[in-house]
Every structure is written in structure tokens, then in C-alpha cells.
Design a protein around this nucleic acid. Structure first.
Lengths: 244, 244
DNA sequence: CGTACAGTTGAGTTTATTCAAGAAGAGTGG
DNA sequence: CCACTCTTCTTGAATAAACTCAACTGTACG
């Protein structure tokens, strides 16, 4: 299950500020960081809640989500992770992790030891890149609170899809407003705080209105502007540079 | 409006790891940090969304909340802030802030310039204390996502009140399971993602069942264990040290 | 060919919302 | 001290949103 994967370093470079902002020295430091790459099948737990791992993970390929489950069996997905995202960087700062991270599809994950991150964090730029990653994740979570608290089904669904479109576009995974979305409606419902049945009906409404078309795990956004409008979506909170 | 306030340094000490963990040298550094203390009346905006401030704030006294408002006029409170909390530390890492922070009652706020935080962050312990503060806030926000997504009215309300009780107790503001809660039911509803009417009815249920008593801005939790049980509340995510 | 999982649809029930109006307080000025 | 106003809290009733339950379709896979 353990393989070498050349994309790992590129992801780390990107996450730590982008190649253009890094000095030759900094790039040398990054390339020396040991990254253990592991491939996971679909629906595999990468990180389990309450664990105290000596490492944090970077998603290299595929897709994953963070979820919380209570003893009554209710599950709520609290974040979706796309390639290039840290999955559990918070465990580097808080030692313990409060969510379970699971793949939705075949994925590659890079494991970095905390002691190596510790070493990296001595460089101010790297330190800030990691902190910023956490801050942006937190901003997304706050927007989810708004989404769950103040938007009804159809709008809520449209907002989440708009967020995913925007983030997918940022990492270059969107072509012609179309992208792979390896997520089931059950998972989507768990993220939206809605039942599967209701999620299905909301998606159908968006489809009927000609806004989206979701076939075979591939989402095509037919009218991104209208979708964003119905979903009351503004992309500022994602902190995506206009240059990207 | 600008006053000196001796509690400011104590709060900063506490936030940066607690007096016992700080060296004499570190305490000296902290005591030299310029903190501008400003008093705000009730319902005053301390920080406005999308601003780019050269400072971050520490709540010294009173209570505040972070909220997001969309152009349709819906408001969602995404966090409550208690004395000792940083209000907008994320703006130190991301420059811009995505929420508006408002007082609920007469409050004292300490303003610290980002350049001074920058200086503090050169000390590893201080740097980690700030990062940890952000990570814990994020964990609370994730729990709110669960709360809004997966718990119905009464349980959701019970959970929030349990969270506030626990956090209030941690800062020593609880006596006999009773504490000042200077929040209106409108604000509580905005935090719970519910209408004011429904919030009122959920509170009434908790009252009728003999779990709480909320009179004149003072919440008395009559049965903390039962309240936590109904609210499906576990305090692990708050990362509160058992010693405290 | 059977099983498992994902998606879809209908019908009844529960939860929460909106609208509306009245009661209880707090603060203000005469 | 009282009348006035404003905000907060409370309650009822009709409506809307979302959930549960249940059944059925399709598809992938061994």
C-alpha cells in the first residue's frame, strides 16, 4: 500500500506558498521533507476521531470528508477535502483530532510526521502557510454554519455545489464547468444536514430548473451564475487569490 | 472611551499558556505588549466583516458574538465570545475578516497591533498558543455544524447552553451552576439557526422539564447532567484541561 | 442470478416557520 | 410618579419545510 508519488512534493510546494514565492533554499528544504504516500480505496478511514497521531496528512489525489458521529448514530459531515488540502493539520497544534476523515473514492494521501512539520515551522513563511490553511478551513466551516442555519434545502444545496465548483476550479479540476464529484447523495445529505430523501428532491429541483446535471459521478454546472444566486454564494470567504 | 485596564495583561498571560508555564523572561515580554483597552456599550460593532484591521482583539469583559449577514437580511451567529477569547485572531493570519463581531452587553476589549503579535510569534510558545486558540475555535464551529445539522430544536438548544455553561465554568464565571447570560432570545435563535418563536418554545420546554431557569439575564442550570444528555453534549472538543 | 448499494418516488407525520397579537419589562421625559 | 415608547418575551393558529417509512428502480459486481 505504500508507494512513492511524485505529486506529493508539488502539493506541498503549492500549499506552502506556491513555487514563485519560495526561495531556492526553501524549495530545497521542502524537497527534503519525508512524505509517506499511501493509497486508500473508497470509503476508508484515514484518520479516526480522538486519535493522537504523530503525523498530519495532505490529500494528494481523490476526495475525502471529515465527519462527526454521536452515540445515537447521527452523522454530520463537517468538511469536504479536495486534492491539495491538509486533512488534519489541527492535530499538529492540538495533538488530538475531533473528527474522522474518510475517503469517498480511491485516494492518495501523504503523511508528514509532526516533528518534520515542527522543523518546517521554524521558517516563518511555512509557519504562516500552515496557519493560513487552518484559518481558511475555519472560514469555510463558518459559512457551513450559515448554510445549515439560514438557508432552506434547495438554496443550501446550491451553495454547497457552488463552493465545490469554486474550490475545484481553483485546483484546476474543472473543465467547462464540469468536474468529478465522487460523492453519494447520502454523503451530500450528511453534509447538508438533511435526509437523503430531501437531498434527492433538492437536487432534482436544481436539475429540473436547468442549473445542474449530475450523471455518473460527474457534476456539470449548466448555469454557475444562477446556481450561485440561488445558493446565495459569494466566494470571498474562500480566500482564493484572483490570480489563480 | 479609552481606558487602562489591569485585567488585560492577565488575560494575555492566561491565553499565552498560563502563568505557571511562562518563564520570567516570557512574562516580561508579555507585560511590555501595548494593549489599548476600549469599552463598548451593548450591541456595538467591534469588528466589521471584510475590514482589514492592523490589530486583533481580546475580549476582557462582557460578551460578544461573531455573525454573518447576507444581502437578503438573514443573520447567523457563528460564535459566542467570552472573556479571555480572541475575537478575530484569524485576521492576523488572513489579513481580512469574514465576520462581524458585536457586543451583547457592556464590554471591555483589548486591541493588540498585528506587528506586536508578529513580534510575540517569534517565541515558539506564544506562536503555538495563538494557533491553538484558532484550532479550538474551529473545533467549536465544527460542533455547531453538527448541532445545526443533526439535532432538533430542544436538543440543539440544550447543547448550546451546555457549551456555554462549560466554557463559563472554565473561566470561573459560574457559581452554583448559575451564570450571567446577557443574550436575547433573538440572538440565541440566530445562533441556533431557528426562529425566535421556536427558540422561545424550546427554552420553555427545558424550563418546564426542570432543567434550566433563565431569569433576568441569569441562567441557572438546575440539572447539568440531564441538560448535557438531552443536548447530546460531550465536552472533549472544547479542549479544556481537566486541571482547570 | 442474487446481493448490495445508490437513487427515486409517494404518502403521512413531525418539526419549524410565519403571521399576528398580547404581556411584561426597561428606560425616558414630563 | 405616571404615561409613553421600545424592546423582549410569550402564545395561538395557519402554513410550509423537512422527516420518516416504505416501496420500487436501476446498476455494479461476484
Amino acid at each position: 500500500m505504500l508507494t512513492r508519488y511524485p505529486g506529493a512534493l508539488e502539493m506541498l510546494n503549492r500549499k506552502m506558498g506556491g513555487l514563485d514565492r519560495l526561495s531556492a533554499q526553501q524549495r530545497r528544504i521542502l524537497s527534503a521533507v519525508p512524505i509517506r504516500v499511501v493509497e486508500f480505496g473508497a470509503n476508508r478511514e484515514i484518520i479516526r476521531a480522538f486519535d493522537r497521531n504523530p503525523h498530519s496528512c495532505l490529500l494528494l489525489q481523490g476526495m475525502a470528508y471529515s465527519s462527526k458521529i454521536n452515540e445515537r448514530g447521527s452523522r454530520q459531515i463537517v468538511a469536504f477535502h479536495l486534492p491539495g488540502d491538509f486533512l488534519d493539520l489541527q492535530s499538529f497544534y492540538a495533538q488530538v483530532i475531533d473528527v474522522t476523515v474518510t475517503t469517498t473514492t480511491l485516494s492518495k494521501v501523504g503523511f508528514i510526521q509532526h516533528e518534520d512539520l515542527e522543523e518546517l515551522a521554524t521558517d516563518r513563511l511555512f509557519d504562516r502557510a500552515m496557519a493560513q490553511s487552518i484559518v481558511i478551513d475555519a472560514a469555510i466551516t463558518r459559512e457551513w454554519v450559515f448554510n445549515l442555519g439560514r438557508r432552506e434545502g434547495v438554496s443550501r444545496t446550491a451553495h454547497l455545489l457552488s463552493e465545490l465548483l469554486t474550490r475545484m476550479r481553483d485546483i484546476g479540476a474543472v473543465q467547462g464547468d464540469q468536474f468529478e464529484l465522487p460523492v453519494t447523495q447520502v454523503q451530500l445529505g450528511d453534509a447538508l444536514g438533511m435526509s437523503t430523501v430531501h437531498t434527492n428532491r433538492c437536487l432534482k429541483q436544481l436539475t429540473t430548473r436547468g442549473l445542474i446535471s449530475w450523471i455518473a459521478g460527474c457534476l456539470r454546472v449548466l448555469d454557475p451564475v444562477a446556481l450561485a444566486q440561488i445558493g446565495d454564494f459569494e466566494d470571498d470567504y474562500l480566500h482564493i487569490r484572483a490570480a489563480a
